[in-house]
């Protein structure tokens, strides 16, 4: 702890959207308590710190670092390693840092294809000279460098050692505040911290547990995209054909999405003991698809199943929306699959 005796707090964004920062600020008036208790050591979103400041800190200077965002390029990785070294407690904050989230969906394609889409092929792009970002570029003044764009997006713990995980895209404010309280109690009063590697700020049952909608036996003949139907109120969305990852997702959010008619996207990640959230949900969905009648011809069965499955337009993006980086799938197999 520093001269004024206050513990040091840092928050950093790697490959992220900025929502995680907002979620911390979203804890409302509690932010005043945070300000009271902590000294900010690094928080680029809200305060003017530079990387050099951090480099100047002694190792372990920061008490708690909330690291959000996935590791997408060499700068992200450099910052992850730096903050790991300077922090006593490194928290993977939010889905990107915890399990790759949306950025890691790029693992379904290649680095080249991603760059091409972004810089050449999008309809809104005007790039007649087909200029792509170069890691190094010479100008009269000297050599310019930008971070290296990686082939595979990783979660934070695939690069550095992580102490705790807070799931969510973004984490819910009440959960954030609950975690901060535990941390404060530990730092100020010496209360015990959860065991290293714990997932904090979330439950350990499925979202369905928190979801008030009525659940019945399920046989699903086809799926709908959210705009296609108005769900019947009060009834489990999944059995109405709206893909809902609630049963495959850790609780903690309060089942906010299903309660407003939007199927759970799965942002709190897999349940304890589940290796692969996407595979688990796929296998659940496959189990409840109405696969025709006993005695039906093989070809007819194939057709029925195929038609039902075809109503889910983007299965990988649907079931692995948040969990790609850690999934057994890990990434699409291409010639460069052993690249970093």
């Amino acid at each position: 702890m520093s001269v004024n005796g206050k513990p040091k707090l840092a928050m950093y964004w790697a490959a992220a959207c900025g929502g995680c920062e907002i979620s911390v600020l979203n804890i409302g008036e509690h932010i005043l308590t945070v300000d009271e208790v902590f000294d900010l050591a690094f928080f680029p979103c809200i305060a003017d710190f530079k990387t050099v400041d951090v480099r100047g800190y002694p190792d372990g200077y920061i008490d708690v670092c909330l690291f959000n965002g996935a590791i997408r390029n060499s700068e992200n990785e450099e910052m992850a390693r730096l903050l790991r070294k300077k922090s006593k407690i490194l928290v993977a904050y939010g889905s990107c840092a915890y399990e790759g989230c949306i950025p890691a969906l790029a693992n379904l394609t290649s680095k080249e294809a991603t760059l091409e889409t972004v810089f050449l092929n999008n309809p809104t792009i005007d790039n007649p000279d087909r200029v792509l970002p170069q890691p190094a570029y010479s100008v009269p003044e000297g050599e310019l460098e930008i971070p290296e764009f990686y082939h595979t997006v990783k979660a934070l713990d695939q690069v550095v050692d992580v102490d705790y995980y807070i799931p969510g895209c973004p984490p819910e404010p009440h959960q954030v505040w609950a975690v901060l309280q535990v941390v404060v109690a530990a730092l100020l009063d010496g209360a015990p911290l959860p065991p290293k590697g714990s997932i904090v700020g979330a439950g350990d049952v499925a979202v369905c547990e928190e979801c008030p909608l009525e659940k019945r036996e399920k046989t699903i003949t086809r799926f709908y995209r959210p705009y296609e139907i108005t769900p019947q109120p009060g009834l489990c969305l999944l059995e109405q054909g709206l893909v809902c990852l609630g049963p495959a997702t850790r609780s903690g959010c309060g089942a906010l999405c299903p309660q407003v008619g939007m199927g759970c996207r799965g942002c709190y990640g897999p349940l304890p003991g589940v290796e692969d959230q996407g595979a688990k949900m796929l296998s659940a969905i496959a189990s409840v698809i109405d696969a025709g009648e006993a005695g039906m011809e093989e070809a007819e069965l194939d057709r029925v199943i195929e038609e039902a499955v075809a109503t889910i337009p983007d299965p990988a993006g649907t079931f692995y929306r948040f969990s790609m980086a850690h999934s057994i799938l890990r990434r699409a197999n291409d010639s460069q699959s052993d690249k970093v």
Partner: peptide, 12 residues
């Protein structure tokens, strides 16, 4: 204690 009662398994 961990079952959320989603009822996916019920008909299987």
């Amino acid at each position: 204690e961990l079952c959320s009662g989603c009822r996916i398994c019920n008909t299987l």
